[in-house]
């Protein structure tokens, strides 16, 4: 019975969590941020910012996915950073 209550509570909290994050859109301030700004802000959280010339555009697509998963970047951040790196190459 105790286990069942834990499972139901866990499922309820997980459901509530999904509803909350799905309903929270980025504010205008965040949505309007330039891709260059996002590149500078997010890479620096763990390591120096890489120059776009470090990899070619195809490699950046793979590396940006690796970084999105490692740092749990949002979809918008990851897409904009990739856009910046490719457009600067």
């Amino acid at each position: 019975m105790k286990k069942l209550i834990s499972i139901v509570t866990g499922a309820f909290l997980f459901g509530a969590f999904i509803i909350i994050i799905s309903s929270c859109a980025a504010t205008k301030e965040i949505a309007d941020k330039s891709s260059t700004q996002l590149w500078g802000e997010n890479c620096m959280r763990c390591h120096n910012t890489p120059p776009s010339s470090a990899y070619n555009n195809t490699q950046w697509e793979t590396i940006s996915m690796h970084m999105k998963l490692r740092a749990n970047l949002t979809d918008l951040e990851s897409a904009k950073i990739l856009e910046f790196l490719k457009s600067s190459n």
Binding site: C24, I30, N72, L73, T74
Partner: peptide
């Protein structure tokens, strides 16, 4: 299961 999301101007990430 992992990901990241905006919460207004703030952000959360979860695993």
């Amino acid at each position: 299961l992992r990901g990241g999301s905006q919460l207004g101007n703030a952000k959360i990430n979860y695993v």
